[in-house]
Computed example of a mutant assay.
Amino acid sequence: MCTSIGRCGPDAPSSSLQGEKAVIEHTSINPNKSAHIGHLRNSCIGDALVRILKRTGYNVEVHNYIDDLGNQLADTVVGLLNVPYEGEHVRFGDYCWDIYSRVNKEYAQSPEMTDKRTDILHALERGGENEAWLGNLVAERIVREHVEEMKNFGIEYDLLVWESSIVRAGFWASAFQRLAQTAVFVQEKEGKLAGCWVLKQSSVADGEAELEDYNIDKVLVRSNGILTYTAKDIAYHLWKFGLLEKDFSYHEFTAGLWTTGLIGRAFWKSGHGY
Rank of each mutant, 00 (worst) to 15 (best):
G242M: 09
H36A: 09
E25N: 14
M113T: 12
N224F: 11
I155F: 01
S249R: 15
N30D: 08
S249I: 02
H251R: 13
H89K: 08
S16L: 14
C96S: 10
A235W: 06
W162D: 01
S164K: 10
K240V: 12
R102I: 02
W97Q: 11
S174A: 15
G154R: 03
L227D: 09
R126H: 09
I66T: 03
E210C: 06
A180V: 01
L137Q: 15
S249M: 14
S249C: 14
A194C: 07
L257G: 02
G9K: 04
A108D: 15
Y65C: 06
T228V: 04
P13G: 06
P84S: 09
H36S: 08
N30R: 07
K105V: 08
D11Q: 11
E208N: 08
G38S: 04
T76H: 06
G79I: 06
D75N: 15
V184R: 12
A205W: 08
G135C: 08
M113Q: 12
L81N: 08
S14G: 08
G9M: 05
H146W: 03
H63R: 11
Y157G: 00
K240W: 10
A180I: 00
V198D: 04
W258I: 03
G127W: 09
Q181E: 14
Y274F: 12
N42M: 11
S174Y: 06
K192E: 02
S202Q: 15
S4H: 13
A231W: 07
Y236T: 09
R91E: 14
V143Q: 02
I99C: 05
I29S: 10
Y58A: 03
N64R: 12
G19Q: 13
E245H: 11
V78S: 08
W268D: 02
F92Y: 14
V221L: 11
V198W: 04
E25F: 06
Q177K: 13
G46N: 05
D94L: 07
I263W: 14
T3N: 07
G154N: 03
G273P: 02
R141C: 08
G57E: 08
F267R: 13
M150G: 00
W162T: 01
N59K: 15
N59H: 14
L243S: 10
L134E: 06
L199V: 00
L121K: 10
A169Y: 05
C196K: 09
E208L: 12
R126D: 07
C196V: 03
S14A: 13
A35L: 15
S16P: 01
E149L: 12
S270V: 13
P84V: 05
Y214M: 06
K105S: 14
E86M: 11
Y214G: 00
Y58S: 02
E86G: 11
G135R: 10
R91Q: 13
G46L: 07
E86S: 14
V62K: 14
N71R: 13
A175N: 04
G70I: 01
A180H: 09
F267I: 06
N215V: 00
